[in-house]
Design a binder for these strands. Sequence first.
DNA 1: TTGTATGCGTTATCAT
DNA 2: ATGATAACGCATACAA
Lengths: 321, 321
Amino acid sequence: MTNIQEIARLAGVSTTTVSRVINQHPYVNEAKRKEILKIIERLDYVPNSNAKSLKEGMTRIIGVLTGTYTTLSTSFIQAFNTSANKHGFNVMLFITNGDRQQELIALEMLRSKQLDALICLFRTNEWKVIESYTKYGPIVTWQRLVSDTIPSVFMDHYKGYTLGLEYLYAKGYRRIANVFSSKGLNTPERVRSYHDFADKYQLKANSFPDFHDKLTIYDGEEVARWWIGQNDRPDAIACSNDNVAAGLLTELRRAGFSAPGDVGILGFDNTELAHLLDLTTIHYPANKQAENAFYIILDMLGQPAPEVHTLEFELIERKST
Amino acid sequence: MTNIQEIARLAGVSTTTVSRVINQHPYVNEAKRKEILKIIERLDYVPNSNAKSLKEGMTRIIGVLTGTYTTLSTSFIQAFNTSANKHGFNVMLFITNGDRQQELIALEMLRSKQLDALICLFRTNEWKVIESYTKYGPIVTWQRLVSDTIPSVFMDHYKGYTLGLEYLYAKGYRRIANVFSSKGLNTPERVRSYHDFADKYQLKANSFPDFHDKLTIYDGEEVARWWIGQNDRPDAIACSNDNVAAGLLTELRRAGFSAPGDVGILGFDNTELAHLLDLTTIHYPANKQAENAFYIILDMLGQPAPEVHTLEFELIERKST
DNA sequence: TTGTATGCGTTATCAT
DNA sequence: ATGATAACGCATACAA
């Protein structure tokens, strides 16, 4: 095992000097620095991370807790990862698949100092349980949560959904059907958004049944078949996400219909799929949220952190409306 | 920061005794043990992993390197994770999305002792690069690779595919079309398998074009539309995986056809989807391979390891043939 | 059955 | 500009 002492011995200097070279401290003789670097190179020496972690009191590893690896979480995770790397942190991914035990493993790693912080995209254990771990290190979430100890980079979907509905209204759509996603934290906000919207414009509410728990491409196809089967069809469909909108659009096309010719389709999230299929959608800045999450963690770790971004939903007009 | 010394001080014993209690060593007075445990509980003490890692020379973390998170890799990773946990190891997941740099991060963590070993489901850098890291710790792969330094838990797809073809033949199918997956390492073996099979039974080769790069449900649907459009249809289709078979089956059904009534469909992998849709398929024991991968690593780490499983493809007959 | 002393590999303080 | 030395928190060889 080649360690810093061996390098020091070979270079005829003290470990301090070697450490200085490694960590780019000033005040080290240029000739010695060159020599030391050469020996490091020759022996293929790398500082032992564990020793460093022990000494520094941190591992520079941040855990990311998620349930599944979906399109949206992917872009969040990637952006988070990029930010973290830029600041010398690495990311440890935990895909729990809803397993409480798996989630606890990550939490325990925070407790035992193997992780400096945790970002929670999804949780299985009660918030109370997760909150009880905040004393061991920063925990930040992407979910809707108001907590003193767990900051959230959540965005209010009421605003985002309203943005979409107002756009549809402006385009002349009046008979709008809603496809909602799972009974999570955002759906109630979207439901409320639609109700307020319908009130505001005196639209006949409940002319169509609300869809719920629709989130996959297949769900979108199902909605398409429903639409086809109606006598009195909606003139626009606001979808829970781009997947649903994509399934809806392609299934309608298979049946010989078109959008926006026969019906307007609005996606949500602005994923690659929306781009691919030219779906009008609401841009949900997951990557910026991820950066914010990292900045918040950085700040909580007492490190200098950039200012967080202000986040805005944005309507991306394409060709499905 | 509550450490082992504080516990020792409070209990009026030495750190050695506390350490013994924590690590369940014998020879410690029962009364003291109880008392120490009580104090540990009260102070909410956890041993610092970094100190332990430094002392023991290992972190008990194994990295899993993958490109994307797909159905098949999921079952591998989960099985690997379970095995690892059972032996006191944790798993750090790296989803590279084909980014060389991301892969190097994992490799470097092995070098700097943050990882005890690496399991490589997918690689982006050249094997030569990856091989150069084997001197820092065990690296095991799931891909086809013959190497002195990187053991593989790969299974020969020639055998698996032949198993399926022979089964189709026995069931009376003579006009078999092949749907292959990406130009990876297994496809050539499958192609070879079909050629040998066709030779053996004097089947007219190339009566149908081989499909390539088909691996999603959508690809399967595309194959269905092709099949429907043919005058002279194959009587069976051997699919690259269960996804394709599923897309094929459901799209045929939408068009009013059935399997095995109109055509036999054979999947591959035996995933949940095959179960769900009653697809005849080839069981590919990814979970056993994962356990083997872990056992090999355990052995390479000089720890006592169970015997590896012998792996066999298995034909799962359901209702699509 | 228990304690003392040492080392794992670093970084940082304080002299020089 | 450089080096001795003391931590960081733990496990263990050895002594008692």
